[in-house]
Amino acid sequence: MIDLSVLLGSGLRLKNPVMTASGTFGYGREYEPYLELNKLGAVVTKGLSLLPKPGNEPPRIVETPCGMLNAIGLENIGVEAFLSDELPALKAAQATVVVNFFGETIDEYEELAEILDQETGIDALEINISCPNVKAGGLQFGTDPRMAASLVTAVRRRTSLPLITKLSPNVTDIISIAMAVEAAGSDCVSLINTLTGMAVDLQSRKPVLANITGGLSGPAIKPIALRMVHQVARNVNIPVIGIGGISSTNDALEFLLVGATAIQVGTCNFVNPAITAEIAAGIETFLHESSISHISDFIGSLQLA
C-alpha cells in the first residue's frame, strides 16, 4: 500500500495531495458527473464574500497561448447561500472541503472567518489576499508584507480552522510575503494566484476584456509558479501548496519535487473535468513504479548540485 496522504499543518490531513483551485471548480457539485469528490485531496470552493457579488461585465475571458486571461471579478453567491445551498451537497459527498474567501476590508475577512468557523463540514479556510483593500486606497492586501500579515493575524484570531493563505505572484518579493503570513499564524501558503495580463484586439483597437486587464492562468504560467514554489518552500517552515498551470501527473510531480506538500489544479479542469482524479491516480502509479511507499519521501527531494 502506498501512502499518498499529506499533512497540511497540524490539523488537516488530505488523503492525497491533489486539490482543486478556487474559481475553477464551482462549488464542487458541478463536477460530480465526472469524478468522486471524496477521491480528491480536497475541494476548494469558488471564492466567497459576505454578500453575493455580481462580478464584471463581459467579455470576461480570452484564450492566450497555452493559457487564458480571466476577469470574472470574483462573482459568487455569497456565504449565506453557500452554507444553505451548496455545503450540504459537499458534506453528503464526504468531500474534504476548503472554503476560499475574500473581503474588501479586514473587518469583512474577520466576519467571514467567524461565520465559517461555526459551521461543521468545513475542513480548512483559504484566504485570498489578492484583493484590493478599499481602506488602503485599493492596494491589494497581498502586495505588502505588513498588510498581508495584519490581515492574517486578524483572521487567525477568529478561527481555529486550519488557515491557508493564498499568495499573489504580482509582487517583487513573494518570499517576504510568505514569511510574513507564516509569522502571523498561517498554517500553510498556497501559490500562485493568476498573473495580471492583458489582451488587445488590433482590428477594433480595444482591449479584449471589458475589465481591460485579467488574470493569466494555465500551462503558460507553470515555470513561474514552479520557481516561486521552489523559492518559498526553501524559506518557510509551513507546508506549501503549489498552483499554476498543472495539466498532467508529471506537472503535479514537479511541484511536489520542488517542495510543495500538495497541489491545486485550476484552468485544466475546464479542459478535462476529470483531470484531478486522473492526476491523483497518476501520482499513485508513479510512486508505485518508483518503489516509493510514502509520498513524503518524494516531496522536496529535488537534487541541487
Partner: peptide, 22 residues
Amino acid sequence: RMACGFGVCLGCVTRNKTKDEK
C-alpha cells in the same frame, strides 16, 4: 466566449432581465 462550457468558469455570462439587478 467559453472556457468550460458546463457552468463553472463564469466566463460566458450575458445580461438577463428576469434576474434581479444586483
